[in-house]
Structures are given as C-alpha cells and as structure tokens.
Amino acid sequence: MFYERLKSLAREKKKSLNQVEADLGFSKNTLYNTRKYVPQGEKLSKLAEYFGVSTDYLLEKTEIKNPLKEPVDLEELTSDDNINWDEWLSFGGKPISDHDKQKIKEIFGDRLKD
C-alpha cells in the first residue's frame, strides 16, 4: 500500500509525515490522505526525489529502491582534479587509493585522447 511505503521511508529518514509535508511545501494532511488516493504527477515526483527512490518504488511496481545512477563520464573523471572520486568509484565497497586513482587517470586519460 502506498501509504505504508511512504511511512516506512519517512521513518528511515527520521521524519514524521507532517515534517515531510512541510519540507516539500505540501498542505497539511496531504500525505495522510494517501491512504485513500495515490498522488500523481509533480507530487509523486517530489516525493521520489525527496526520498531518493524511483516513482516505481513508491508505487510498489518494483522492490528496487534507488533508480540506476547515470554512467560515469571517464573523460570528465580523468580531466578534472576537483572530482570527488569516492562518490563515483569504489572497489569492493572500499575507497580507491590515491595511487590507483592516478593510474586510472593515466590509462583512461591517454585512451580518451586518441
């Protein structure tokens, strides 16, 4: 049920439904009314973005919470020293060492120039 999924996401974020409504600029009891109806369009999109999930997850069409992330642009990654590598890459769930980052930049940077 949509309302139950919404309550669960709010709980995970340590927020009440009233707090979520205030954060999103929804009128009072908007989210409590989802026991009777499922929001559409912009409200649904705002909720998905707020909780970092797909609209399909909110609508219980999938159990996959997070949508697929955009692919990493290697040219951008290898040409910009201000990139937060730990946000983009890991190996076995662990951060990549500075040495390995430099090697990746060297390998892919040269290939991208050809």
Rank of each mutant, 00 (worst) to 15 (best):
E49P: 07
W88E: 06
L31S: 08
P39L: 12
Q19I: 09
K61I: 06
S8T: 04
A10I: 03
L89R: 01
L17C: 03
N18D: 08
N18H: 10
K14V: 01
D80E: 06
N29T: 10
I64M: 13
E49H: 15
S45A: 15
K15R: 14
E42Y: 14
K7Y: 00
E21I: 04
G25T: 09
K43Q: 15
F26G: 09
Y32W: 10
A10L: 09
E49Y: 14
G93W: 07
W85L: 10
R35L: 05
E70M: 12
E21P: 00
Y50T: 11
V72G: 11
E21W: 06
G93K: 06
T34Q: 07
D81M: 07
K103N: 09
I96L: 08
F26R: 14
D73F: 09
K14Q: 11
K61G: 04
E21G: 06
D110Y: 01
Y57T: 14
K43A: 12
L77C: 01
L112A: 03
W85C: 01
Q102I: 01
A48W: 08
D23W: 09
N33H: 07
L9C: 09
E106C: 03
L112P: 00
F51M: 13
L24N: 11
F91C: 11
T30G: 01
K101Q: 03
L89S: 01
E21M: 05
L17K: 02
V72F: 10
E42F: 14
K103R: 13
F2P: 02
V38F: 07
L47A: 06
R111A: 11
K103T: 12
K13C: 03
K65A: 08
L24Q: 12
F26V: 09
E60D: 15
K13Y: 03
T55H: 10
E87F: 01
A22H: 12
S27H: 06
E70P: 01
L24M: 13
D110T: 02
W85N: 02
R111G: 07
L89M: 07
S16M: 14
W85H: 03
Y57N: 15
S54M: 10
G52F: 14
P95E: 02
L68Q: 11
L24P: 07
L112N: 11
V72L: 13
G92V: 02
K7W: 00
A10N: 11
D80G: 08
L44K: 13
S79Y: 00
L112C: 02
K65D: 04
K28G: 01
A10C: 10
V53A: 13
E60K: 15
R11N: 15
D98H: 08
V72S: 12
A22E: 15
K113W: 02
R5D: 02
L68A: 12
T62H: 13
D98P: 02
G52V: 13
S16F: 12
E106M: 10
Y3I: 01
L68T: 04
E12W: 06
N82Q: 05
